[in-house]
Amino acid sequence: MKNTLYLLLVIVAFFSCENDKKSTKDASTLKEINVYTHRHYESDQELFKAFEEESGIKVNVINASADELIQKMVLEGEQSPADVLITVDAGRLHRAKAKNLLQPITNSKIDSIVPSHLKDKENYWFGLTKRARVIVYAKDRVDPMELSSYENLVDEKWKNKIVVRSSSNIYNQSLMASIIANDGEDAAKMWAEALVNNMARSPKGNDRDQVKAVAGGEADLAIVNTYYIGKMLNSKDQAELDAAQSVEVFFPNQEDRGTHINVSGIGVAKYAPNQEAAIQFITYLLSEKSQKIFASSNYEYPVNPNVENAEVLKSWGSFKEDQLNLSKLGELNKKAVILFDEAGWK
């Protein structure tokens, strides 16, 4: 009996100290910022730590998928402790805005850094880094001259030659949204159906697995995000390195609208208790120093035009970006999912 009592005491102690440690909403007593983020890279953690040291503002991080974070903010309502929301695509930021979770921020410093197509028209959110969704092809089997655009992938000649991940992935959904925006709904649906027809296998795995499938000869082409190739090329795993080296990146639609890009972005929460700190945080992440870290450790394209790309990215050369305003990706996201289902893209 006595032991049980001690155990209870320990547990109560655990709980109470947990509550003590919990962030306070009174910004005056302790400077801090609560970050809801879908990015869980080590480099981000280091950036947050550097920000803490430089500004004296404590960074509290909640990591989860953007969908879950948005749901959480909706439920928390006015009492939400969230200051900023970071997602890995523009569509989710748009959704957060549509759900009235963000607030517009007018800050000249931010405006001067982020190009207009990479942020919300009404300044509800801003891109932090760019990633392009490109085609990779097997060097030994595909002549890049035969490649041209996403739309061209439905050609007969690629029958059973393409691998791509599942439609539940947000990068695919955004790509689809951009195709709907550019080509129209009917064309987009036909495109998806034809692409499913050309798939070498039913969608599975992640982007890296698609590259490995091409390297392994299961397919000739894969649709993947650029930074995964960057990461694979710098991998310690020989198999991944070999796989990445046996493929080449192709930027589609260079003749017309440009390659589909997406951003990982940030917005200030509508009920942010530490609004000032949030703005300070955003400008820090957009600064050349931070952007360099994004670029070099995560192989993303920085949004700050003054920062150079990582060496790997440079080797692929520059490319024409689709100038479609990224808010569109959010607006058309649901449509994209429905069309995927109708086309049978798992």
């Binding site: 998928s65 959704r95 599942s166 539940s168 599975k204 996201n333 999912v337 429905i338 798992k346």
Partner: peptide
């Protein structure tokens, strides 16, 4: 299931909750 690309009830729940909002 998600990684293996197999659609089940639970992946469906996540899809309709989050992707279809």
């Amino acid at each position: 299931a998600k990684y293996f690309g197999v659609n089940t009830f639970t992946t469906g729940i996540f899809r309709s909750w989050f992707s279809l909002e």
